Simulated scan of single mutants.
Amino acid sequence: MHKTLIVKAFEKAKNELILKGELNPSTVKIAEEISDAIDKLIGFSLGERRYRDYHKLALELEKDQERDINITQVKIVSGLCNYLGYSTYSDFKKKIDNKDKNSNSSLIKRTISTYKYYLLILAIISLAFYGYHAVNQQKWMVWQKDRYVETDFNSNSLNQGLLKLYNADRIEHFKKIDPNCDTVFFKNDGTEMLWYGKNKSGELEFFTSVGLHPETGKTLKKITKYIIKKYICESY
């Protein structure tokens, strides 16, 4: 059932990108959309490459009813279910099983074009319903210089991709810093305390938590001793 889960997540993300103006979003863009959404929902980041790998394997096995893929990260399975509107993986599985049992030959024989049309209509209705409640009930945040700050809803900022759903963890722990030789890069057990990524100008920037670069939307990388010596402190 994991292959159905990831395929449906990609279908939803693709339709949302189309509604935002992306006429033919790439697989990378779709994977980044999912990665960003899951990170916002559960605070757990997984690189877009892993989502693409899962999706590719799912498509290869889609016609084989006896085989499934295995998404090893339990949090990602839960996050994908939440992204598709289900509380738990069990709810998702029950819903899919019921759909399979109630399907009939007339539904199976629908043409691909008709299926895409109704799917698009459903996506528009769902987005309209979600958008109404999101604007009126959801809190928002925006990136300012070196941190996220809470802000009011602004349609122009949302259309420009600047407005993000409020995330308390991002507000409290995600900051951009300028590290130096005195910076503590690792915990006592060796766990990284700094992540990095390039901005739109190609310059390296450093952040205090894992996540996506607030300017480019790309997944940040863990700090390494090589990066420290080359870009921060030659004597490290």
Score class of each variant (00 low, 15 high):
residue 145 K to W: 05
residue 146 D to L: 02
residue 152 D to Q: 15
residue 177 I to T: 06
residue 177 I to C: 01
residue 155 S to C: 04
residue 145 K to G: 00
residue 155 S to I: 10
residue 174 F to R: 00
residue 136 N to G: 10
residue 181 C to H: 05
residue 176 K to E: 10
residue 177 I to Y: 00
residue 175 K to A: 03
residue 134 A to H: 11
residue 158 L to P: 08
residue 150 E to S: 07
residue 137 Q to F: 11
residue 158 L to A: 06
residue 181 C to S: 08
residue 127 L to E: 15
residue 187 K to L: 11
residue 140 W to P: 08
residue 195 W to T: 00
residue 192 E to M: 07
residue 204 L to V: 05
residue 140 W to F: 12
residue 136 N to Q: 15
residue 186 F to E: 03
residue 126 S to R: 15
residue 157 S to F: 10
residue 197 G to D: 02
residue 129 F to K: 14
residue 182 D to V: 02
residue 185 F to R: 07
residue 140 W to Q: 10
residue 184 V to Y: 02
residue 186 F to C: 01
residue 122 L to S: 14
residue 191 T to D: 06
residue 207 F to V: 02
residue 176 K to H: 04
residue 163 L to D: 03
residue 206 F to W: 04
residue 154 N to W: 06
residue 143 W to K: 09
residue 124 I to M: 15
residue 140 W to E: 08
residue 127 L to M: 15
residue 188 N to C: 00
residue 149 V to W: 05
residue 167 N to M: 08
residue 151 T to Y: 05
residue 171 I to K: 12
residue 197 G to C: 00
residue 152 D to K: 14
residue 137 Q to E: 14
residue 148 Y to E: 00
residue 167 N to V: 09
residue 177 I to K: 04
residue 140 W to S: 11
residue 195 W to S: 00
residue 142 V to E: 08
residue 133 H to N: 14
residue 135 V to C: 12
residue 202 G to Q: 09
residue 195 W to D: 00
residue 145 K to C: 06
residue 208 T to W: 01
residue 154 N to I: 09
residue 207 F to E: 05
residue 130 Y to R: 14
residue 204 L to P: 11
residue 171 I to T: 09
residue 162 L to T: 10
residue 130 Y to M: 15
residue 138 Q to C: 11
residue 161 G to W: 05
residue 141 M to I: 10
residue 157 S to G: 13
residue 133 H to F: 15
residue 178 D to S: 08
residue 208 T to S: 06
residue 167 N to C: 10
residue 123 A to M: 13
residue 195 W to Y: 14
residue 202 G to R: 07
residue 150 E to G: 01
residue 134 A to L: 13
residue 203 E to M: 08
residue 188 N to R: 11
residue 174 F to A: 03
residue 205 E to M: 06
residue 204 L to Y: 15
residue 123 A to N: 14
residue 203 E to D: 05
residue 188 N to K: 14
residue 210 V to E: 07
residue 164 K to I: 10
residue 201 S to Q: 11
residue 183 T to S: 08
residue 168 A to P: 09
residue 139 K to G: 07
residue 187 K to S: 08
residue 206 F to T: 04
residue 157 S to A: 15
residue 158 L to H: 09
residue 188 N to Y: 00
residue 160 Q to V: 02
residue 177 I to F: 02
residue 175 K to S: 02
residue 152 D to R: 13
residue 178 D to H: 03
residue 164 K to Q: 13
residue 177 I to H: 02
residue 172 E to C: 04
residue 177 I to A: 01
residue 170 R to Q: 10
residue 144 Q to N: 13
residue 144 Q to R: 12
residue 154 N to A: 12
residue 138 Q to N: 14
residue 142 V to M: 07
residue 166 Y to L: 11
residue 203 E to S: 01
residue 179 P to A: 01
residue 124 I to S: 12
residue 133 H to T: 12
residue 190 G to N: 05
residue 208 T to K: 03
residue 126 S to M: 13
residue 184 V to T: 12
residue 192 E to A: 13
residue 153 F to A: 12
residue 200 K to E: 13
residue 207 F to Y: 14
residue 207 F to T: 01
residue 194 L to R: 11
residue 131 G to Q: 14
residue 189 D to R: 01
residue 200 K to W: 02
residue 198 K to Y: 03
residue 160 Q to P: 03
residue 148 Y to C: 01
residue 169 D to G: 03
residue 203 E to I: 07
residue 131 G to T: 12
